[in-house]
Simulated assay, not measured.
Amino acid sequence: MRVLLISTSERTGGAAVAACRLMEALNNNGVKAKMLVRDKQTDNISVVELEAGKLHLWKFIWERIVIWKANRFKKHNLFAVDIANTGTDITSLPEFQEADVIHLHWINQGMLSLKNIQKILASGKPVVWTMHDMWTCTGICHYAYECTRYREECHNCPYIYGGGGKKDLSYRIFQKKKKLYRKASVTFVACSRWLEKSAKESALFSGQTVASIPNPIHINLFKPHNKKEARIKYNLPAAKQLILFGSLKVTDKRKGIDYLVEACRILAEKHPELKDTIEIVVLGHKSEQSEQLSFPFKVHPLPFTNKEHELVSVYNAVDLYVTPSLQDNLPNT
């Protein structure tokens, strides 16, 4: 069996990492898997990059322009939503033609448009679509937070400046997705029970097949190692209890670092003696900004890395990992 996994990126972001790990797991278990991406970051021969060109950048910019216009020319949530109005037709590529199964992953920001996806579905090949956030089952957002309109019909979108309207951008994209899915034969996969439940509640998924399958992990790589050596590698104190918080972008409010700060404040108030024993490790882009937050414990910022052997070392250096996310699918960390 030949499986083609499709993702915007090979290694940037949790969805890309999960897709890449799945490809490796399939190849290690007798399935011939390849990954088609717009942005390739390694020399992995199983990963195929779309033909490079300035057109990819223009597609991304054009999508932002349409969103910007819908936002009354405000930057409000400009990069928090996607509408899939631009993309690349991949159905004529040899990798697509030879595949027995097409496996979609995170395909936003100009990788595939809704029209491109429609053409993939029309090819007659079996399609699996792994959802790495809520975008597949909402109008335009990746995380709906308190909004539940996607359960019936998206409109008056809180992501649009001024609260949108009855037939705003979210409504129009919702209708396009509804039309797309109506005749589609797709198996949708959520990486968590929470996302499975959310997807099944969406009006877009009425009558659709939705399953929950956790992301794979390389258990021969992610395993215990020498903690002392790991702490020396990252210049972390040998005798402290270390708590790790990690995120692609530390300042992303959805990842909940403010709640971690508050939890630590409460802990320090109730047990002031812990100020001498507990310290915080923050991993990710803009981690240095965490030193300005009101943590009651000393903070050790570490830069973002997408190298798995480095992540293994960081995990082995700490005593506890905390995920205070407000909404999340199944973070690879």
Results as ranks from 00 to 15, higher is better:
Asp133Lys: 08
Leu57Gly: 12
Leu26Ala: 02
Ile107Phe: 13
Gly207Met: 05
Asp43Met: 12
Leu169Tyr: 09
Tyr159Lys: 12
Met1His: 09
Phe188Lys: 02
Leu121Thr: 13
Val318Met: 02
Ile243Trp: 12
Ser7Gln: 15
His285Gln: 08
Cys264Ser: 13
Ala70Asn: 11
Ala52Cys: 07
Trp106Gln: 14
Arg21Asn: 10
Leu104Met: 04
Thr333Lys: 03
Thr91Glu: 03
Ile266Asp: 14
Glu24Gln: 09
Leu274Gly: 01
Gly164Asp: 01
His142Val: 07
Cys20Tyr: 08
Leu55Ser: 00
Lys178His: 13
Met131Ile: 01
Met23Ser: 09
Gln241Lys: 15
Ala199Val: 04
Ala52Leu: 12
Asn332Glu: 13
Ser325Ala: 10
Leu244Tyr: 10
Lys69Phe: 06
Glu49Ser: 03
Asn220Ala: 12
Trp106Cys: 04
Thr88Ile: 02
Lys125Ser: 13
Lys233Gly: 00
Thr91Met: 07
Val128Glu: 00
Ile280Arg: 01
His103Ala: 03
Lys74Thr: 15
Lys176Phe: 13
Trp194Lys: 03
Lys167Asn: 09
Asn306Met: 10
Ser113Phe: 00
Lys270Pro: 02
Ile243His: 14
Glu51His: 01
Ala25Cys: 04
Thr251Pro: 01
Val48Asp: 04
His300Trp: 12
Ile67Thr: 10
His218Gln: 07
Ile160Gly: 11
Gly110Tyr: 03
Ser287Phe: 15
Tyr259Ser: 04
Pro272Met: 11
Lys270Cys: 00
Ala184Phe: 05
Val127His: 07
Lys255Gly: 05
Lys270Met: 09
Asn29Gln: 14
Gly162Met: 14
Val318Phe: 01
Ile266Asn: 11
Lys270Gly: 06
Leu121Trp: 11
Phe79Trp: 05
Phe222Arg: 07
Phe73Ala: 02
Leu180Asn: 03
Gly164Pro: 00
Ser192Trp: 01
Thr138Trp: 05
Trp58Gly: 02
Val66Arg: 12
Leu93Thr: 08
Ala144Asp: 09
Asn316Pro: 01
Ala19Thr: 14
Lys270Phe: 02
Thr277Ser: 13
Ser313Glu: 14
Gln118Asp: 05
Gly246Leu: 08
Glu10Pro: 05
Ile6Gln: 05
Ile65Gly: 12
Glu279Tyr: 11
Lys167Asp: 07
Thr138Gly: 05
Ile45Gln: 15
Arg64Tyr: 12
Ile120Asp: 08
Gly165Phe: 12
Pro272Asn: 14
Glu49Ile: 00
Ile213Tyr: 03
Ser290Met: 07
Asn235Val: 13
Cys20His: 10
Glu262Ile: 04
Cys157Asp: 01
Lys240Ser: 15
Val66Gln: 11
Ile90Asp: 05
Ala70Lys: 01
Tyr321Cys: 11
Lys275Leu: 09
Val48Arg: 08
Val282Met: 09
Ala144Leu: 00
Pro296Trp: 10
Pro158Ile: 14
Val189Cys: 04
Gly284Ala: 03
Leu244Ser: 02
Arg172Asp: 02
Ser247Asn: 01
Asp43Trp: 13
Thr251Asn: 06
Trp106Tyr: 15
Gln327Val: 06
Cys147Tyr: 00
